[in-house]
Every structure is written in structure tokens, then in C-alpha cells.
Design a protein around this nucleic acid. Structure first.
Length: 562
RNA sequence: UGACCCAUAGUGUAACGGUAGCACUCCGGUUUUUGGUACCGUCAGUCAAGGUUCGAAUCCUUGUGGGUCAACCA
């Protein structure tokens, strides 16, 4: 009975209103319209989750439509990558479509517009046209070709299409209003001549339609009810509607463009241009570098589809500019991995520990729980022996009471193993500790049920058996930028804020032998350290792990306060 | 010196004229063979000034602050 009513975001409210005013629920249809000129990022993910989420909520189809009207920038490679990312996020489109599929229809409509006096061919250069545009505060002036006869326009447009003119010599323009306060309404270009091979239509077309002319008409052809885009397209809505008026038939669905604020994330940038720059200038190792906010980068970093969907859901949709805290994304990946990632032991900064009263040559297999958060996860065994590695920072010769880890003369629990007491250290000439000598309590074996095993010891540390451990490379990632909003500073380039420590490479880490058979993409929790996944670079000979995110670390906070 | 959009805890969002709520972060505590998780708790907000109203985060006016718009890009 206690049904918590979920509040609707403003777009859902618009849809509900449309439904209430007679729109048939069965006609609801959405689309996600990427341009195949780059990789998808977390901001796109918000849009994907929005559109496909609406599709799921209303049981309505969602088309994947590639907005491919510019053959100069678009490539098949991006089409494939985009499809992969959307599927990986867990969504299914109704149809894969391309704006280029509509080139003929668009052309036919343009001819009609010319005949009706709504479009004309302009022979001026782009500079001349730009000069006549005016400014936001100043009206533009009409082109000298604006009132050329329909027959001449038809003839010229035909010749543009036939490839009789060079690039840049002619454009088709909509005849609207050169004094409109909306710059986009000042006779916008509908077609330009481009003698470029298109990734799908090849050399069929010599002229290509512009975004504004294409997008709304594509929505109309597909009978999309709600065409949702980001805020910067707000001014385009007037044009979108004007173009729609040229072709709209009353018995058809009339698509509606509505705008929402794009999702920004702190400590990163979200523009394709800037991300491309990071790739091209070598600040990162490609579009799928685990530090990139791209879907492919997040995937390689170890983020899961669900964590990204949950993030988008929690962050919500609204119309104000935002910079969402990276901590929210991290919260969701920790929440999921805590429930699903198998726990294992790995030592990243090893120091040797010798258990002097443990028989030399002896080894035993100890039982370890795979995931205390998941009863189904079961148990595994880990080998134990006389010489172990522990984390260097888990030991101090002397320390105060707040330090729960190993110190001289004190006890600590080795996770899944025995209680040990540190007795002495061996140092090298530099005074660096090379070995810690300790003794163990043979009766304190974890899970043995003995009285000694039940003893409360304040600290528990992880370890690996030296002779059984596997060598691994571990890549520790941190935020790519040191500033919350690196591209928000007018006087500074965003690259000035690149974090020099965004990648810390550990070439000689040690992991427990159960990890011998992992596959790229597998997620683990390295106990007490964080969540890690297997990088595609990983091989049987050389394991490579990426740190997805560290565990929350209250000890680090205590230390920082000092 | 124009048009349009936006303004709610540190961050992101709800409240649709009727008790400002949720999540993250931060801080404190309980439990714990992960200084993790879980659980409990604390701090913290309607940009400003007027107006309408019994009652305003919500409606109106003005101001302030931020954003968008002058590609043959999308």
C-alpha cells in the first residue's frame, strides 16, 4: 500500500501532459541521434539513459539514428563504436537509422520549398553571407540573390546536385527573415556543395543537407513524438518548427523538440573537441584510456553498465547548468562492486615478513570467503607459508594507539590466517626495512573455532605467500584534472589543470595465485585497497590490473588531519 | 548592451499556491577477521528587493548572477 510516488522530471511531465491532451500512448517514440564523429562519453550516457529509459518506461520504441550529414568528419569506425557502447550500457534500439537514408526525401522537399518560394540559391561566398548575417543586436541584410525567380533557383539547385559547381560557390538557403532576433532564422543554409565521399552514400551526392534542415525532418519521417536534445539547441527550436511547417500533414505526428541541460562531471571535460585533443596530443593513451570519461574509457576502467545507469538516474534531468560530483559516480560503482566483486588479496608495495616459528618448507591451504556480501559466492583456498609479503604501510616499528596495524611487540590478524606478533626488523644500509620477523599463534587459525582463533585483535591485514604469489602490473588511476571544472576558466587553458599523477604504474605487485586464470574485464576487490579489473593488455604471462576506484578510506582521513 | 534560458544545503535533484524532502559529500557514533560494507545520527538551502495572496521556493515586477546565440559543424 505504501507506494512511494516517484516524482517526474520535467520532460516526463511534458510527456504526461501530451498524453493527457490526446496523444496516443501507442504513438510515443523517441530517438538517440549521435553524430558518428567521435566516441560517446558519460554525458552522452545521460542522454542515452534518458531516451532509452523513457522508451522502457512507456514501452515505446527508441531509434538509434546516426546524424551523418557531414561526410568530412564521419566514419564507420565511430558508428561501430557507438553501437557497441549503447548495447554495452544495456539498451536496445528499435531500428538503426541514418539521416543519410533521407537524403532523397530531403532533396524532394527542398525542391517543393523552392517552388513555394521558401528557399533560394545564393551565389555568394560564406564570408559574404556571414557579413550579411548582422549581429545579435543588429539586423542582417538580404542577399542580392534572395528574390531570384523560382525557375532559376530550380535550375541552379539541380546543377548543384549534379556537381556542376565547385564547393563553396553556391548554397541553398531558406527564405525566412534576415531581421529576426534569432540569428538562426536569418535565411539559414540548407544545403552546401561537398564533393566528398560519404561513409554510406559514397559519391552519390554532391550536396549535403545541414543539421537544422535534416534533424526535424528526420524526426518527422520516423514519427518521433519527443525529440530531446541539449540546451544549446534551444534557439534551434524556432527553426525546427519552421521547417516542420513546410512539410507537416495534419494526420501525422508532429515531433516536438525539448531541451535539457547536458550532464557535466567534476574533474574532467566533456566536449568531443577537448577529448580529441587529449588523445591527439598524447595526454592519454587513446579514447579508451581508463582516465577518459568516455564510455569505452569507463568500461576499461572497470565501471559497469549498471553503475553508469544508476548514476544517470540519481543525477536526474533538469535545465540548469551543472557540474555533478565525481563522488556520485564513484558511489555507484562501489555500491555495485561491493555486492558483486570477488575479494582477493594483493600486495602493491611489498615488504617481506618472516614467521620465525612456522616450519620451513611447510605450506597449507587456507579457506577464504569470496564475498561476505554474497552468500552464493562461496569460498576458495589461498596458500600460506613461512615467508609472506605484506603492505609496507601496514607496519611501523612504533606507532600510537590509533594505528591498528602491525607494530613491534604487538599483534595483528593476517586475514584468513593466523594472529601474529612482530618481534624485530632487518634493515639495509639505507635504514630501510627489508624484513619483519614475527611469530604466529598456531592455535589462532581463522575459522578453526578454537579459543585463540576467536580472540579479538584490533587490526587485520592482507598478505600473499611469497613462493605462491603471482607477479602483476597494477595501474593506479586518479582524476585526470586537478580542477573541478577545468574548462570553466576563461583565462586559462583546460590542459593547465591536467593532473600529473593521474596514472601511477606499479610494475611489481603481487597477487594471490587464484588470479592465474582471470580474463580481461573481470572485476575484483583487492581487499583493503579497492576495486580492480583486468586490463585488455593482460596476458597469461603478465597480469595487468586497473584500479577502478579505491575503497573509502577513513584511515587516510585520520592521517590527513594530523 | 538585443533575444532566449536558468537560479533550492558543498554537489545533484524534488516539492506544480498549503509542514522545503531525497541522494551524494562532509562530520560524529555503533557493528566488523576489509580502518570496507551495514546501521544510527549531526551540520547545512529557496539569489535580492518589492508586489499579489489568509498563505509564495512556486505567480507578477525590477535587479543581480550564470549560460546560449553571429560555422557552407552537429
Amino acid at each position: 500500500m505504501s507506494e512511494t510516488k516517484k516524482s517526474l522530471n520535467f520532460l516526463e511531465q511534458i510527456i504526461e501532459e501530451d498524453l493527457a491532451h490526446g496523444l496516443d500512448r501507442a504513438n510515443l517514440k523517441f530517438r538517440f541521434p549521435p553524430e558518428p564523429n567521435g566516441y560517446l562519453h558519460i554525458g552522452h550516457a545521460a542522454s542515452i539513459c534518458l531516451n532509452f529509459g523513457l522508451g522502457l518506461k512507456y514501452n515505446a520504441p527508441v531509434n538509434l539514428r546516426f546524424d551523418d550529414t557531414n561526410p568530412e568528419k564521419e566514419e564507420q569506425e565511430y558508428v561501430d563504436a557507438i553501437k557497441k557502447d549503447i548495447e554495452w550500457l544495456g539498451f536496445q534500439w528499435e531500428e538503426v537509422l541514418f539521416s543519410s537514408d533521407y537524403f532523397q526525401q530531403l532533396y524532394d522537399w527542398a525542391v517543393v520549398m523552392i517552388k513555394e518560394g521558401y528557399a533560394y540559391v545564393d551565389d555568394q561566398t560564406s564570408n559574404e553571407i556571414a557579413e550579411q548575417k548582422g549581429t545579435p543586436t543588429q539586423a542582417g541584410t538580404n542577399s542580392p540573390y534572395r528574390d531570384r525567380p523560382v525557375s532559376e533557383n530550380l535550375d541552379l539547385f539541380q546543377k548543384m546536385k549534379d556537381g556542376e559547381f565547385e564547393e563553396g560557390t553556391h548554397v541553398l538557403r531558406a527564405k525566412i527573415d534576415m531581421s529576426s532576433p534569432n540569428m538562426l532564422m536569418r535565411d539559414p543554409v540548407m544545403y552546401r556543395i561537398l564533393k566528398r565521399s560519404h561513409h554510406r552514400t559514397g559519391k552519390t551526392w554532391k550536396i549535403y543537407p545541414m543539421y537544422d534542415w535534416t534533424h526535424g525532418e528526420s524526426d518527422y519521417i520516423e514519427q518521433i513524438t519527443h525529440s530531446l536534445c541539449t540546451l544549446e539547441f534551444k534557439h534551434h527550436r524556432e527553426l525546427y518548427d519552421w521547417f516542420l511547417d513546410r512539410v507537416y500533414e495534419p494526420e501525422m505526428i508532429r515531433p516536438k523538440q525539448r531541451e535539457f541541460a547536458r550532464r557535466n562531471l567534476s574533474y574532467t571535460v566533456m566536449s568531443k573537441r577537448k577529448l580529441l585533443q587529449l588523445v591527439e596530443e598524447g595526454h592519454v593513451n587513446g579514447w579508451d584510456d581508463p582516465r577518459m570519461p568516455t564510455i569505452s574509457g569507463l568500461r576499461r576502467r572497470g565501471y559497469t553498465p549498471k553503475s553508469i545507469r544508476d548514476f544517470s538516474e540519481t543525477a536526474g534531468i533538469a535545465k540548469r547548468d551543472n557540474v555533478t560530483d565525481l563522488a556520485l559516480l564513484e558511489f555507484h560503482i562501489r555500491a555495485e562492486l561491493n555486492k558483486t566483486a570477488p575479494r582477493v588479496m594483493a600486495v602493491l608495495d611489498p615488504v617481506k615478513l618472516v614467521i620465525t616459528n612456522y616450519p620451513e618448507g611447510k605450506e597449507e591451504m587456507l579457506t577464504a570467503e569470496n564475498n561476505p556480501e554474497d552468500e552464493e559466492a562461496g569460498f576458495r583456498t589461498v596458500p600460506f607459508s613461512r615467508e609472506l609479503y605484506i603492505e609496507r604501510e601496514d607496519f611501523r616499528e612504533v606507532a600510537n594507539k590509533k594505528f591498528f596495524r602491525l607494530k613491534l611487540g604487538k599483534e595483528v590478524r593476517l586475514k584468513n590466517a593466523y594472529i601474529i606478533q612482530a618481534n624485530s626488523v632487518v634493515k639495509n644500509e639505507e635504514g630501510e626495512i627489508t624484513e619483519i620477523h614475527c611469530t604466529y599463534d598456531p592455535d589462532s587459525k581463522s575459522g578453526s573455532g578454537s579459543e585463540a582463533s576467536m580472540r579479538k585483535v584490533k587490526g587485520t591485514i592482507h598478505w600473499v605467500s611469497i613462493q605462491h604469489a603471482l607477479n602483476a602490473e597494477v595501474r593506479l588511476y586518479d582524476r585526470l584534472f586537478t580542477d573541478e571544472a577545468p574548462d570553466s576558466h576563461k583565462d586559462k587553458d583546460f590542459k593547465e589543470f591536467i593532473n600529473p599523477d593521474s596514472l601511477k604504474l606499479i610494475e611489481n605487485a603481487y597477487v594471490e595465485p587464484s588470479l592465474a586464470t582471470v580474463a580481461p574485464g573481470d572485476n575484483f576487490q583487492f581487499q583493503r585497497l579497492g576495486y580492480f579489473n583486468v586490463d585488455p593488455d593482460s596476458t597469461n604471462d603478465k597480469l595487468v590490473f586497473n584500479r577502478t576506484v579505491a575503497l573509502r578510506d577513513s584511515w587516510a582521513k585520520i592521517q590527513q588531519k594530523k
